[in-house]
């Protein structure tokens, strides 16, 4: 898809796609035949630059026709480089600028609480994204409002666009920060489905405070020559690299 488009954020997509799969095939109560059902669970992809991973997941879940993903970022396609809720069923809010998803998710969770409804809200952020201050405004509010119907998943792949997070504006100790903000923090392996689902189970069972699942992930997971290399945040593979990457993903690294 990224090769067809000639653009995208492959590294960021491969680090979070396992989380998306776990959410859409085992956690979220959403219905592709009624994507706006009032009682649906809400999922917010705050790291909107991973839109490609969301589109393939939505297609697999029945929200989009599988063929349509090959129009990704083409002129006139509704599958823009960042998701647009008016155009794409299953998208809840438009993201792209970082630090927008968690505040909106806090509002969603608060709405469910005010209306006395039992649907849950999930939001997936990157880790570099947490350098945006709006996340911490929202983090405080979520704890203040005791939003135990809110789950934050952090795709903690340790890299941002230009460099490792630690060398840019280090977030460590990240789990301690969320704990200090009043959140229940659970470390999970973001590439292990049992671990992801165990974390989601804990979040659902937690009362009186929101849960943060610290998903330890690898940038460009699954492709040996891309993994944890900062260049692959938004590099487009050559034809030869594409063939090697596909082989890695389908057969495992050689």
């Amino acid at each position: 898809m990224v090769n067809e488009a000639g653009a995208g954020h492959l590294g960021s997509e491969l680090s979070c796609v396992d989380l998306l799969v776990a959410l859409y095939f085992g956690e979220l109560r959403v219905d592709p035949t009624d994507p706006m059902a009032p009682g649906r669970d809400r999922f917010v992809l705050s790291k909107g630059h991973a839109a490609g991973a969301l589109y393939v997941t939505l297609a697999e879940a029945g929200f989009l026709e599988p063929d349509e993903v090959s129009t990704f970022m083409r002129a006139g396609s509704r599958l823009s480089g960042h998701p647009d809720r008016k155009a794409v069923p299953g998208v809840e809010t438009n993201t792209g600028p970082l630090g927008h998803g968690l505040p909106v998710a806090v509002g969603m969770a608060k709405a469910a609480r005010l209306r006395g409804e039992d649907w849950r809200t999930y939001v997936l952020t990157g880790d570099g994204e947490l350098q945006e201050g709006s996340n911490w405004e929202a983090g405080m509010a979520a704890a203040q409002f005791r939003l135990d119907n809110l789950t934050l998943l952090i795709d903690h792949n340790r890299f941002q666009q230009g460099a490792p997070v630690a060398e840019t504006n280090d977030l460590a100790p990240l789990a301690d920060k969320w704990r200090a903000f009043g959140w229940h923090v659970v470390d999970i392996d973001g590439h292990d489905f049992d671990s992801i689902h165990a974390g989601l189970d804990v979040a659902r069972a937690t009362s009186d405070r929101p849960t943060c699942l610290m998903a330890h992930t690898n940038k460009a997971e699954g492709v040996s020559f891309m993994r944890d290399r900062v260049a692959w945040h938004h590099r487009v593979p050559t034809e030869e690299e594409y063939v090697r990457a596909r082989a890695d993903l389908t057969e495992g690294p050689s």
């Binding site: 630090g99 505040p103 969603m108 209306r115």
Partner: peptide
């Protein structure tokens, strides 16, 4: 009192939360 959502001195969160409340069916 429960329908007054006060986010404190945090305007980015203020508007984001309002968008989420609207998504959840409220009229903020």
């Amino acid at each position: 009192p429960e329908r007054l959502v006060n986010v404190g001195i945090a305007e980015q969160n203020l508007v984001g939360v309002a968008a989420g409340l609207a998504n959840g069916g409220l009229l903020p």
